[in-house]
Amino acid sequence: MAEAPPRRLGLGPPPGDAPRAELVALTAVQSEQGEAGGGGSPRRLGLLGSPLPPGAPLPGPGSGSGSACGQRSSAAHKRYRRLQNWVYNVLERPRGWAFVYHVFIFLLVFSCLVLSVLSTIQEHQELANECLLILEFVMIVVFGLEYIVRVWSAGCCCRYRGWQGRFRFARKPFCVIDFIVFVASVAVIAAGTQGNIFATSALRSMRFLQILRMVRMDRRGGTWKLLGSVVYAHSKELITAWYIGFLVLIFASFLVYLAEKDANSDFSSYADSLWWGTITLTTIGYGDKTPHTWLGRVLAAGFALLGISFFALPAGILGSGFALKVQEQHRQKHFEKRRMPAANLIQAAWRLYSTDMSRAYLTATWYYYDSILPSFRELALLFEHVQRARNGGLRPLEVRRAPVPDGAPSRYPPVATCHRPGSTSFCPGESSRMGIKDRIRMGSSQRRTGPSKQHLAPPTMPTSPSSEQVGEATSPTKVQKSWSFNDRTRFRASLRLKPRTSAEDAPSEEVA
């Protein structure tokens, strides 16, 4: 009796068929016929556990003709996506030579605008209408194809895939403007070719909807975003200037109206006075309405000098805001240009540092100066060695804690006790272990408590650290204090090793 083939788990290929790579489910599931010992083939499952149809090819690079078809379809799909992405970037994010197409579109729109203006002049109306009709045909074809291509290429973005995504893309403001202008152009052409009475009025009214094509030149909205950011950044200043200017306008108009309503027919109503105030304070000055009385002229002159300053403030605020924003954008561009080279330089330096163990090129690091100058660790070890030599091999803490019996001779020589300023008595072995921070803190506390006492003391002649007598400086308080830590004499004296002298005989010792 033939044995059933062993159940295979995992992703390994079956024996005897090495080139074939078959994806098997996580659990080997066989058909009921196979479990019962029949000759049925096992049921194939996909990666998600769903059964595959009987005629479906197995996924994998070596699955025969199905694999070749899959490779061809995958390559075609990649080319399709690449083309779609390229078209989308050309239309929505132009760079380099892609601006040539947008310059061509701008020339078409500008020519249409010029011809629309010439069509309103009686001398050039006939020729402009003929040229404009031909140009409209060209623009309908160009913009119609462009609109379709834009909607198709938007599928390269995830949020615009599918018919719902394309509809979302078509609802964008600039796409809506394109659609309105396209419909208006078709209506103008249809009305112009019919030759009816309505054609002339339709051409004159709907052609100027094509002015909206100038708005579509900035599809990404960079200028509007820049203007919005400047207004938002200086909103408080703008609101303040406009508010005060509006108050000056209504008060000036009302007072001039009261002064001129009886003697001047131009100011017969408050609305006429508001019109005069707006034209005057905005420095336009049509001259259609002028005050005639001396009181009205004085009020107009005073409020004009006051109001023009507030009406001119928004222009200066926006101008300075634009300058600052442009400078910030230039700085951001320079930062973006330098970020990648800086990151590459840091990575290269780290690779060199991690692979080169000698690091002989590091001549400006802490390790280099640590090898030249005595390190703080060596100074600490030197302090501890000196203290243990004086205390008979014991550390200062051990000397303080060691009990001394009554009447027993002390094995240590008597030492002079010292007192730290602002604290109780402490171990004499710690007097010379006072660090730089303690010395600086002690000097600052003395300056806070009594700076007036220092200038009363007789001035001391500054001497070099080499000429100081070591026996005289029994305490860190003898170090000359200065008002600034930048004094080199104080810094050098604080680094010197001060020996400890006994109370009975204080021989001067120098520590090399």
Rank of each mutant, 00 (worst) to 15 (best):
V24G: 06
S67C: 04
P61S: 15
A25T: 01
A75V: 13
L203P: 00
Y232N: 00
F110V: 07
I180V: 07
P53A: 07
R207H: 13
V215G: 00
D262G: 05
S111I: 10
R93W: 01
A75G: 05
R216L: 04
T240P: 00
Y232C: 02
E92Q: 01
D272A: 00
N129D: 12
L107W: 01
L47P: 02
G277A: 06
I239M: 09
C156Y: 02
K78M: 14
I211S: 00
V29M: 04
A68S: 14
L145W: 02
P51A: 04
L209M: 03
R216G: 08
A202V: 03
A184T: 05
E130D: 09
I177V: 11
H77R: 03
F167C: 08
T27K: 07
L11V: 03
G49C: 10
A128D: 04
K78T: 15
Q33P: 02
N196T: 00
G302S: 03
L113V: 00
H77Q: 15
S268Y: 01
A191E: 00
N344D: 13
A300S: 12
H334Y: 13
P53S: 09
G302A: 10
R171K: 07
F106I: 01
S50T: 03
V215A: 09
G302C: 04
A128P: 06
L135V: 02
R8C: 11
V248A: 10
S116P: 15
P51S: 12
D218E: 00
F110L: 04
K261Q: 14
C156F: 04
G62A: 14
R166G: 06
S269C: 00
H330N: 11
P57L: 01
Q194K: 03
T200R: 15
P14L: 09
L115M: 08
R72L: 11
K333E: 00
S111N: 02
F167I: 14
I211N: 00
L212V: 06
Y243H: 00
P51R: 08
W86G: 04
A36S: 05
A18D: 06
I180T: 03
A263S: 10
P53R: 02
L48M: 12
D178H: 00
R166S: 05
S31I: 01
F174V: 15
R219L: 00
K172R: 01
Y270F: 02
I140V: 04
G49A: 04
I177N: 00
L127R: 02
E130V: 09
P6A: 10
P5S: 08
S73A: 04
M214V: 00
F167Y: 01
V141L: 08
I239F: 02
Q33E: 12
V100A: 08
I148F: 05
Y80D: 03
G12A: 05
E136K: 00
G49R: 05
F104C: 02
A21P: 11
A76T: 12
R150L: 09
E126K: 01
Y232F: 01
M214L: 12
Q327E: 13
L227V: 00
R93L: 04
S119A: 11
A75D: 08
L295V: 13
I121T: 12
P57T: 02
F104I: 11
A301S: 11
S268P: 05
V29A: 09
A259S: 03
C131R: 10
L91V: 06
L11R: 10
A128T: 09
T240S: 06
I239S: 00
E22D: 02
R168H: 09
S309P: 13
S273A: 12
S229L: 13
R95H: 14
L132H: 06
R216P: 00
F179L: 03
F104V: 01
S63T: 12
V87F: 09
